[in-house]
Every structure is written in C-alpha cells, then in structure tokens.
C-alpha cells in the first residue's frame, strides 16, 4: 500500500503517575536511517520498546508493516531486529554460540553461511571462539548487532547502541550501519549524541516525552533562520547573561565559549559592544552556520518557556 514501515500516531505512555511519552507521531520509510535524538529521560527507550511490542501504549497506535504492534507481537517480532540498551549477550557463551543461539530461537535454518557473513562484516571472525565477556565493549556491541541480524530482519531498532563505547568503535559501528543501509535495511536508532544524529537521513528531536521536530538534519538547521555568533570570552556565563538581558537573544554556553543565535541578516557588532561595555573580555569570535545542537537547545528552551507559561 505504501512504503511506510513504521507508523506511530498520537502515542501516549504513562507509568503510574509519570507520563513518559506524551503524544508522539512519526513515520519511517523503507530503507531510511532514522535517528531519534534526545537527552536521557526524553522517552526514547519507552518509544522504541513500544515499537518492539515489549510495552503497550496507554493510548494511540503503533504500526509496523501495517500491523498494530500490541496485537500482532509474534508476527512482527519475526521481522524486526532489536538491540536493547545494554549489550544483551550471554557473557558466558562464545561469539559463535551466541549467534547460533539466536539463530536457533529465530528458527533460522542453515544459518552457518549467514553467520560467517555477519562475522566477516563485523570483523569478529578472529574472535569467534572467545567468550563474550572477554570481548571489548565495542566488540560486544558488534556481536549484539550480529545476533539481532541473524534472521534477516526488515527493520533494525537500536536503542542507544553507541552509549558508553569509545569513539573509534563508535565510528566502526556507524560504518556497519551505513553498509546495512546500503543493502536496503531500514534502521531506527536512538542516541543522545547530536553529532551522530547528523549522519541520519531524518532525525526526530525528542524532549520530555514529545517530539519537537522531525526532518532531515540540514532542513532542521535551516528551519529557524538564524546563524550562530560564536564568542570565546570569559567569564562565559556573565557574557551570556549580559546578552540575554540586553538583547533578549538565545545565548548558549559551551564551556568557555557561547553561541549566540542571531537573525540571518542582523549586525553582530552590537553584541560584541554589549560584552565590552560590561567589562568582559572577548578572546575570539566567529560567525557559523547553526549546528543541530544549537537548534535543539533552542527548541528545548522554547518548549520550557511554553510549559512555564501554561502552568
């Protein structure tokens, strides 16, 4: 009917008094690499567990392959690969045994060829007889990925697979994701790292149970028509306060520098003047395009303002 693999409409999920997800809608197309980005506690894990059928939404509908997840768990679970937040492996089994186990419980016949492919692909072949607990964090994560791919799923749901992994292994992992995507795999990945989100086809920014925006990373960056005035100054906090008070701009602090979100065609000198007038020192400044991070922080601040106003 359509090429949508995943459709979520107005999903709410409450844990007793806590609202974890507050009305989320999103669609994922076949072959897409979709990033769900947000800070800890945004509701990413809850959402992905609803998609896998591990949780039922309090209200709203989640469909995979046009089937309601809560009612068609078995059918759906044959066609998805899920990787939970921890590297969920049997640490006391070897690499081969782990893959074999997951192949068997997925009732994959003749998995040997597929297993060797996956081992090649993840470059774990030299370690195939090693116990999972003796692998490095990055290798454990790749093994977990291989286990979730053994049954040739149509969509991969990855819950923060790169959290707590060293940068090199993280890059390695993304390379694998890109080649999977090339083979036509649909991938939903959650991550707290905005740098990783930039590599996705489309990104949904999530905070406090709501999706703030869903689009291609480039389009998100251009969506608020602003540029970033990057000022290295000290003390950064005081500079940001001064700018906020005087001009009402969004000044985001990143350690010893601040990013001031200013209109595309506005004059930046007035901001530098303000800082100087307050007897604060400017070491350096630059005009940049907005990063995904700038936009995200901006949107979160707006969301907080709106929440404060309604209360």
């Amino acid at each position: 009917m359509n090429d949508l693999i995943l459709q979520a409409e107005e999903i709410f999920k409450n844990y007793r008094a806590v609202e974890a997800v507050k009305g989320v809608s999103l669609n994922i197309k076949k072959g897409e690499l979709f990033g769900l980005v947000g800070p800890d506690g945004a509701g990413k894990t809850t959402l992905i567990r609803i998609f896998c059928g591990l949780l039922n939404p309090t209200s709203g509908s989640a469909k995979l392959f046009n089937l309601e997840t809560s009612a068609n768990k078995r059918k759906i679970q044959k066609k998805i690969g899920y990787l939970s937040q921890k590297f969920s492996l049997y640490r006391d089994l070897t690499v081969d045994e782990n893959i074999e186990f997951f192949a068997d419980i997925h009732e994959v016949r003749n998995y040997k060829k597929r297993r060797d492919e996956l081992l090649d692909f993840t470059r774990l072949k030299p370690f195939r007889d090693r116990l999972a607990e003796n692998l490095s964090g990055g290798m454990q994560q790749k093994l977990a990925l291989a286990c979730s791919l053994i049954h040739n799923p149509e969509i991969l749901l990855l819950d923060e697979p790169t959290t707590g992994v060293d940068p090199l292994s993280r890059r390695d992992f993304w390379k694998i994701l890109f080649s999977l995507k090339k083979q036509g795999m649909t991938i939903l990945i959650t991550t707290p790292y905005l740098g990783e989100a930039e590599r996705c086809n489309r990104v949904a920014l999530m905070n406090k149970g709501k999706i703030l925006v869903t689009d291609e990373p480039e389009k998100i960056k251009n969506s608020i028509n602003k540029k970033a005035l990057e000022i290295t100054c000290s003390p950064a906090i005081k500079c940001a306060e001064a700018l906020k008070n005087k001009h009402g701009v969004d000044a985001q602090i990143f350690g010893d520098r601040i990013d001031v979100l200013i209109e595309e065609n506005s004059d930046f000198n007035q901001y530098l003047e303000t800082i100087k007038k307050n007897n604060l020192t400017i070491k350096n400044f630059n005009i940049n395009k907005l990063s995904l991070e700038n936009v995200f922080i901006h949107l979160i601040k707006q969301q907080d303002l709106k929440l404060a106003r309604t209360q």
Partner: peptide, 13 residues
C-alpha cells in the same frame, strides 16, 4: 539483569 530477557521476548519464542 543483563538484558537478554527483552532480547528473548522480541523473538518468536
């Protein structure tokens, strides 16, 4: 505890 339980539930087991 190690998270394999969820992994198992998401299979046709």
């Amino acid at each position: 505890e190690i998270g394999t339980f969820d992994q198992l539930i998401v299979t046709p087991i």
